[in-house]
Design a protein around this nucleic acid. Structure first.
Length: 551
RNA sequence: GCCCCCGUAGCUCAGGGGAUAGAGCACUCGCCUCCGGAGCGAGGUGCGCAGGUUCGAAUCCUGCCGGGGGCACCA
């Protein structure tokens, strides 16, 4: 990448300056480059002189010394000291031509190997199979999937994982709810438990199961019936979850059942490990994990007095399991409503002897749906919840995914269904897709007129119009946008980027006729189109949004 | 009470130490003999408040105000 080259050159100059005694040798910062907002400030700028001169001398003088110490290069057209002490670099056009050729000819433009093959487990959605996937899970699916894609694009080896409970107390409650509806189906009096699942989908499910197994479970002992009902009930629900997510364009490498942790003894093993470290205590008949020693506000029960493990117990086993599978880094994408449990998981990481920075828990804020100007709050656990399938029926997969990815995960997302659907032509997702389709159309037309873009031989120096220059620069910035988005786990940066690129392309399209009598110029512009199409498709690909050839 | 997130344009939100703070929507006014008008151009008000750190703060720190969420032997 260009910033690496510039960085090396400036670093060399810095060391020369330090050797000359103008800068303490033990205080040579690493140069960092950014693209100035204002084009008068060159192509790239660094504040390294401002940083290095802290308490040492005048920044502008140091900047000038660095500029003087720079080795001559074909890459750099000019360097100037500006403002309080910035170094502004103007590059020769060839770097942009190189960018365009690479973007036009390679599908991996924008990707890098900075991840060094680090193995990352990204766990997201992870909703229990008690009902249809809702829109909140939809946001998680889109975000988690894109974070995973960004990590892959930056050279990480990624596993997408979905964790769910298939036993345990909460699920038993689900089994009991289905069982109650099942009995009701046969006209037997029964009531769904107080905190149970009272939704219509549970009734339908119970009915389906009743038709399948008949009255086989009617005369069974109630506790046994609930248990066996659960075993029958969750697999079809999970299948529906899988279908919904697949339709939404999100696939997982691993579907992890909590019960496997108990079967393999990983839960008891983890508790044993903690006990050996003196971090487990028995109180009131329950086993407590002394998590408060690791920053949690209080200790946590891992085994209840009735012998049942708590959720955190499973978390302990799951941590051990994930690390034993060889992951270097674990990302848990959780809903913001789980933030209270973050300290206890991090306590577990530390207590079990794992590397704390290797575990990361980004929190995704809530989704509120607006329909007909009315706000419907969708919470994973309480209140109304709109099925993801319904939303997708309404607005389509591309618009739904794209909209989920326009916001920072820290911001609550207001999803206005009417806006995303009814104003489709003005929706940014279509704007971006339209730009892609339009390029395809131009390339088709060019082919009809006998033009075949030749990336290697095209005379890109013919691209002199300001709009062409803008477009090339925007393409170049994709190489920073992807690593930044990956580093910050910030999908919305890619959404923003593709919108800006589409808009910049529109400017080029307006000002520059691509297919003209001037064959040489046409060739160059076609290569620019190819490059733009490739980057648009690549960016949309990271988002899991389609890049259609026609609309 | 304690913890987390947020407060930027009329609305929904980007930007999260750098030079003149942006986008979409909404509103107004212009543009279609021209490769796709699902488009393009023009028009404008804004970083909640008060301190602090810094050469430089929308950005970092502290306090306050406002909004949302969380504080179980639930998940």
């Amino acid at each position: 990448m260009i910033t690496d080259q510039l960085g090396e050159m400036v670093a060399a100059a810095l060391h020369k300056v330090a050797a000359a005694g103008l800068l303490p040798a033990d205080n040579v910062p690493r140069p960092f480059f950014e693209r100035p907002r204002n084009r008068d400030h060159g192509d790239w700028a660094t504040n390294v002189a401002l940083v290095a001169s802290k308490g040492v001398g005048k920044p502008r003088d140091l900047a000038q010394a660095i500029a003087d110490a720079l080795e001559a290069s074909d890459l750099i057209a000019s360097v100037e000291v500006a403002g309080p002490g910035f170094l502004n670099f103007r590059l020769s056009p060839s770097w942009l031509h190189d960018v365009v050729r690479r973007a036009a000819s390679r599908t991996d433009f924008g990707t890098s190997d900075t991840g060094n093959g680090v193995r990352v487990n990204v766990e997201f959605v992870s909703a229990n199979p008690t009902g249809p996937v809702n829109v909140v899970s939809g946001r998680h699916a889109a975000v988690g999937d894109t974070i995973a894609a960004l990590l892959e694009a930056t050279g990480h080896e990624v596993t997408r994982e979905y964790y769910f409970n298939d036993a345990g107390r909460q699920m038993l409650l689900f089994g009991a709810s289905v069982a109650a509806r099942y009995l009701q189906h046969f006209g037997i009096e029964a009531e769904v438990p107080e905190n149970g699942y009272k939704g219509e989908d549970v009734r339908v499910l119970a009915q389906e199961l009743a038709e399948e197994i008949g009255e086989a479970l009617v005369d069974v002992d109630p506790a046994e019936r609930d248990r066996r009902m659960l075993e029958l009930a969750w697999p079809p629900v999970l299948e529906r979850v899988q279908r919904s997510l697949e339709r939404f364009g999100t696939t997982f490498d691993v579907w992890f059942r909590e019960s496997t942790l108990h079967e393999r003894g990983e839960v008891t093993g983890a508790i044993e490990t903690l006990r050996e470290k003196g971090l487990i205590e028995e109180r009131d008949g329950a086993l407590w994990f002394l998590s408060s020693r690791f920053g949690d506000d209080k200790d946590r029960v891992v085994i209840r007095s009735n012998g049942e493990p708590t959720y955190i117990a499973a978390d302990l086993g799951y941590l051990v399991d994930k690390f034993s599978r060889g992951f270097d880094r674990l990302i848990y994408l959780w809903g913001a409503d789980h933030h209270g449990t973050v300290p206890r998981l991090m306590a577990a990481v530390e207590a079990l002897g794992f590397d704390t920075p290797a575990v990361e828990i980004p929190l995704v804020q809530i989704v509120s749906l607006v329909r007909g100007g009315e706000q419907v709050k969708a919470s994973k656990r309480h209140g109304v919840s709109v099925p993801l399938d319904e939303l997708v029926d309404d607005v389509g997969v591309d618009a739904a995914r794209y909209t989920f990815l326009t916001r920072s995960i820290d911001a609550p997302l207001e999803f206005d269904i009417d806006l995303v659907k009814e104003q489709a032509p003005e929706n940014p997702v279509y704007y971006v897709q339209y730009a892609h389709a339009r390029i395809c159309s131009i390339l088709r037309k060019a082919a009809e007129e006998g033009y075949e873009p030749e990336v290697e031989v095209a005379r890109l120096e013919r691209l002199e119009h300001p709009s062409e220059d803008e477009l090339m620069r925007k393409l170049a910035s994709y190489e920073e946008a992807v690593p930044e988005a990956a580093r910050l786990r910030a999908p919305q940066r890619i959404t923003r980027y593709v919108e800006e690129l589409a808009s910049t392309f529109s400017g080029f399209y307006r000002d520059c006729k691509v297919v003209s009598e001037d064959r040489e110029l046409s060739q160059a512009r076609l290569v620019l189109c190819l490059a733009t199409r490739s980057v648009l498709a690549g960016g949309l690909g990271l988002l899991g949004v389609g890049a259609p050839d026609r609309m």
